[in-house]
Amino acid sequence: MSFADIKEKLTAKFEKLNLEYSSFRDNDRVIVPPSDLFEILSFLKTTFCFDMLIDLSAADYLHLQGATHRYGVWYALLNVENGERLIVKTHLDDPDPRLPSMYDLWKGADWMEREVYDMYGIEFDGHPDLRRILLPDEFVAFPLRKDYPLRGMGERHNFQSVIRSEA
């Protein structure tokens, strides 16, 4: 099943959506609207047997020249039988960025979605356990957003020190 086939079938199935396709080096990409993401991904999973979710992550396009949306989330899929890969990408915007959770399709999405939530604050509807994963629960910022400074807001030194004579 080549990229051309996938393109053809996807376009036939989702005529109304005008999906965008692009290829760069060996990466084949489909850019889809977030509202139909779940349908498209489950169609890809059942029809083309993309049974492994290799990667799921996001980027913040705040300072990127020419970007039209704030966040992009990508799903890198792999067909384990024949090793074919496809990247599905979707774009989101700021107030209340949210996406459907892919936990029902791929269990592997569990932690990856939690990480995206932790780093970018994108919420996933239907995720069974959406908490912060890497940062402490009490942390308030989303550190990989572009408006968060590299050295943080001073959180890293917000602890008491232990003096030698005390302990």
Binding site: E138, F139, V140, P149, M153, G154, E155, H157, N158, F159, S161, I163, R164, S165, E166
Partner: peptide, 24 residues
């Protein structure tokens, strides 16, 4: 050894608008 021995706190070097008190 009853005084703080470490370096000066880094947060001093941040301007107030750059720093925020996170719940510790």
């Amino acid at each position: 050894r009853n005084v703080y021995e470490g370096p000066r706190p880094l947060s001093k070097f941040l301007s107030p608008d750059q720093s925020v008190q996170a719940p510790a």
